[in-house]
Design a protein around this nucleic acid. Structure first.
Lengths: 231, 231
DNA sequence: CTGCCGCCTTGATCTAAATCAAGTAAGCTT
DNA sequence: AAGCTTACTTGATTTAGATCAAGGCGGCAG
């Protein structure tokens, strides 16, 4: 139900993507021309570490878990990739093998911009290059922030931060962008700890956990303070 | 003593830098033409979070600690920047305020490529753009690796990895690239833990700690195994 | 309807590494 | 040479969060 989103064209997906949405129409069109639509069922592997990079994936709908695996088989979720976001860009621009794994958390529709066409475009299109350089800089900054969220902040601070970053409707209601266990893991917490933190925030009157993945923020002031929003 | 390195010209420093060493001579020359030499004394602040980015710093000699500060004043060392390396590139390319602090660990000589000249060069020089895009991709990969070293590996594994990455002379002797406390902090360990891990590796016959910052690797096989070098 | 399987919650216990607390040693400045 | 300071080592104790264990609850397959 509500899976009729896949009617969007490649060009529409490109236009509404964070990575390429800023390009001019003609550039978007030329990328769209050589793009391919792909669909992944829930739980299916999208790519694996070490593979050569097929290109850039842009998400139309669904959710993809990007993760790495440790020496004892533990997973770490680098990124929960939602609609409008992209993955495998880093390997595509850097021309190295895929550095992480990806599986579909839900059924997912996406557009693949094949690597060779992309490289051709990059070789010719200076403006594209400049924009992607800027995007990659932001991406470095993002990971640096994640890194020292994990290093410098405790469990409650990390969760508060996450909640502050999730878009929130008029009445302070927000929807978690994925399963709690994946969100927790992304913050380097167990789902147990995540759950306990939410409860404590609830007890302190900062939050109200509605239905499963919906949360109402009662005191966004306090939440921001816990998150220590002096980046 | 041995501080006579500062005789190198801007162009020489650019040529031997990891970031810009791959450029053509004429490009290097044009950047050198507008570069400025700077010197920082031990302990001096080079830049602070939130400042606007003055440009790219390339290290000629010395050592710079790049770090962020947590809500309780704790530091996290993102990068110990040595000769040939650079810092502030990310903010320069992304055009945002400096996201970290920097102080000189020792007296440091470096070359600053001012931001405006750099931006001009980037606007005109497609090849430069492409190379920097590739560099930033590698930089993302680097931080992702650091991130899940910290998340997925225990203290001994992290230290083993660090030691494997440090260049090592013919007879297995290597020199730590900075003070132990900074290296430890970079791996999200205290210097106490770092010290204890080295002792254990010594007891296990993998290492022999020579003088203060020099270590002889006795069993590099074993060291690599502990580091789980299946990236 | 029933049984199973993920996801989540909650409580009890455990543990890796932090923190605290002494030192030692090397490099300075005076 | 005496006195500082900074880097490092080593041991004892603490702790945040992980792990283990036991349900609860909702969805969906049969």
């Amino acid at each position: 139900m509500s899976q009729e989103k896949s009617v969007r064209t490649c060009e529409e997906v490109i236009r509404s993507s964070e990575l390429l949405g800023g390009l001019e129409d003609c550039q978007q069109a030329s990328l769209a021309a050589i793009s391919v639509k792909q669909q992944f069922e829930q739980g299916h592997r999208v790519m694996s570490q070490g593979q050569s990079c097929p290109g850039i994936y842009l998400l139309d709908s669904g959710l993809v878990r990007i993760f790495r695996i440790g020496p004892r088989g533990q997973q770490h979720v680098l990124h929960l990739c939602g609609p409008g976001q992209s993955f495998a860009e880093v390997a595509a621009f850097g021309n190295f093998p895929i550095p992480a794994n990806a599986t579909a958390v839900q059924r997912t529709h996406c557009v693949l911009i094949p690597i060779d066409a992309l490289q051709r475009e990059l070789a010719n299109n200076h403006e594209l290059c400049r924009q992607m350089l800027s995007s990659m800089s932001l991406w470095v900054r993002h990971f640096v922030q994640l890194l020292d969220d994990i290093v410098l902040r405790d469990a409650m601070e990390r969760v508060a931060r996450l909640l502050c970053d999730v878009p929130c409707d008029h009445s302070g209601r927000l929807k978690l962008p994925g399963p709690k266990k994946d969100l927790a893991n992304h913050l380097n917490l167990t789902s147990e700890t995540f759950s306990r933190v939410l409860r404590r925030l609830n007890e302190q009157g900062v939050l109200d956990v509605d239905s499963d993945r919906t949360i109402r923020v009662l005191d966004s002031e306090q939440l921001a303070k816990i998150g220590a929003l002096a980046r």
